[in-house]
Amino acid sequence: MNRTAHLIAVFLENKPGQTARVSKILADAGVNLCWLTIANNGTFGVMKFLVDQCDLAVTALKQQGLMVSLLPVLAVETDNRPGALLRVTDSLRAQNINLDNCSGFVAGEHALLLVEVPNIVQARATLEEQGFRLLSQDEMLRL
């Protein structure tokens, strides 16, 4: 099973109404948002999100003329208790792997870390060796 999940990234001008525009496209397409973040860089921003129907969302956004890209991420399942993040980051540090971006959320019993790294193959191997469970897109959405 493919242990890489994907975030959808959308390039937006930083002006009022842009997030609403994206939300409306997704709503009209019947796509559900599971997680989202917006990175702002002055005049522009990048909106990243996890959705239940990735292909449908990408098609709908592109049809409306938006610039869209798919970002591979590792979805690492950790325990929901103190020190869990440290275990993940320690494993990566040991292999000298730098994090591009990282975010996380807790869903019930599970805690999930979304990790963007430059070399995703190496990072995946490292984390699996350390006994971490990496979730596929489907598994993550079932949380």
Binding site: L7, A9, F11, A39, N41, F44, G45, V46, K48, M67, V68, S69, L70, L71, D100
Partner: peptide, 18 residues
């Protein structure tokens, strides 16, 4: 305007290009 296909999802890359 950014060229179509030039967006890879990383805000950092856009900032560097800028």
């Amino acid at each position: 305007e950014l060229a179509t296909g030039a967006f890879d999802g990383y805000v950092e890359h856009l900032a560097a290009l800028q």
